[in-house]
Design a protein around this nucleic acid. Structure first.
Ligand code: MN
Ligand code: MN
Ligand code: MN
Ligand code: MN
Lengths: 215, 215
DNA sequence: ATATTTTTTTAGTCTAGTCTAAAACAATTT
DNA sequence: AAATTGTTTTAGACTAGACTAAAAAAATAT
């Protein structure tokens, strides 16, 4: 499988995780910052290889085979991110682009050894689940901070947005995975939140709250 | 720089290490298992980027810029090999092909952090020197076992051939980097060697002897 | 039901990197 | 010095993956 094919599969996988319905050509094009015509070409190729179910004009979905292939790429991505943070001391906002490269290294043996070396982690540095060697994923129940009620207390276990900008903002506010977060007040006017992070009280916007997962 | 450009640079670098004279199109083609016409195309491209000195029909050599670029690829290759053996417990005959992939990961920061993580090693699992971040190489004096005289004793510090077959043969004979080797007898008829590896006496062919570096 | 807009596909072009076959050049032999 | 052989380059073709522009199909508005 080529670099490019792998990227398309991964994109379709991520889009399927949020939509149920078949994935449109345009949705893929937008996410990959490419043109719809390029997507059509690739979908034909992936369909030929039985990695996707594709009917002209009707969108696309992954086959079982495609799903597994996509999961293995996600597995690699998240294990490499974990390696970079845990072993090489990268910060969580630096690792995504590197993992975009490393996820294409072809070797089952390597990734399984890396998995063992890291102690078989179930989540990556952003709180996202790492599929195991057979593709199984342990889902933890979590909800967005923005959907929690006043006075609830929880632990930050993940981020929805994994952009460097957002992660750096969290660093600045000293919000990390594992931080205890309590909702002190919800401001109805602008939907902002007054929260306590461990011992410190801060105000965050709705946009921030809707990108933090709490358990 | 593309994957392919990097591979050409690396090949020219390795050929220059053994030849002094300019490198021929055919030599490159043979080493890369490609066609001479493909090599010519790439040499033009590399010359355009001032990575090689190339004059039609007269062979090619690396510029300073090309040399440094090549060294950085070799650095990555050998650091990744070291990582695979030291940290992930791969054996020395399995790592080359994986390093061929990993050497193309683009990130100075990553490779420097990996270097630190490994304790800034100066040699890879095959005894080959690892260039440092600025391209410097610590050369250790070593000679081929085949060029040593009778009764000399030394330590095996490297292998010339790094093929899996050869390395597995060495494993079978319990010859490893660090093994003490003494030449007991040189058989003039077939140029074979009677040697002592640590405490064990064995016979090896000239071909084996001419692929082992001793200090 | 028809017209308009949006989405998707097709057709054709481009680049990087490869190849084969032919031409040009260099080295070697006679 | 000429002929032969070997090496290198050029010319032209191919593939993967991207693109633009046009055509086709689907969705939406009138
Ligand atoms: Mn990521
Ligand atoms: Mn992640
Ligand atoms: Mn190697
Ligand atoms: Mn090596």
């Amino acid at each position: 499988m080529t670099f490019s094919e792998e990227n398309y599969l991964k994109t379709i996988y991520h889009l399927m995780a949020v939509s149920d319905a078949d994935i449109s050509t345009n949705a893929i094009a937008e996410k990959m910052e490419t043109k719809a015509s390029s997507v059509t070409d690739m979908l034909k190729k992936l369909a030929e290889k039985e990695l996707v179910n594709y009917i002209k004009y009707q969108g696309v979905s992954l086959t079982e085979k495609g799903q597994l292939a996509a999961k293995m790429i996600v597995r690699k991505h998240r294990l490499w991110e974990t390696f970079l943070v845990e072993k090489l001391d990268f910060s969580w906002d630096e690792v995504h682009d590197l993992a975009e490269q490393l996820e294409h290294i072809k070797s089952e043996k390597l990734i399984n050894k890396l998995d063992d070396f890291l102690g078989n982690p179930t989540e990556d540095p952003h709180g996202d689940a790492i599929p195991d060697a057979s593709g199984r994923i342990i889902k933890i129940e979590k909800q967005l901070l923005s959907e929690m009620e006043k006075n609830r207390v929880g632990i930050c276990v993940g981020v929805k947005d994994t952009s460097s900008d957002f992660l750096k903002y969290l660093d600045k506010q000293e919000i990390a995975l594992g931080s205890q977060i309590e909702i002190i007040e919800k401001e109805s006017f602008d939907s902002s939140f007054r929260i306590r992070v461990e011992t410190k009280e801060i105000t965050i916007s709705h946009k921030i709250a809707s990108n933090l997962y709490i358990k």
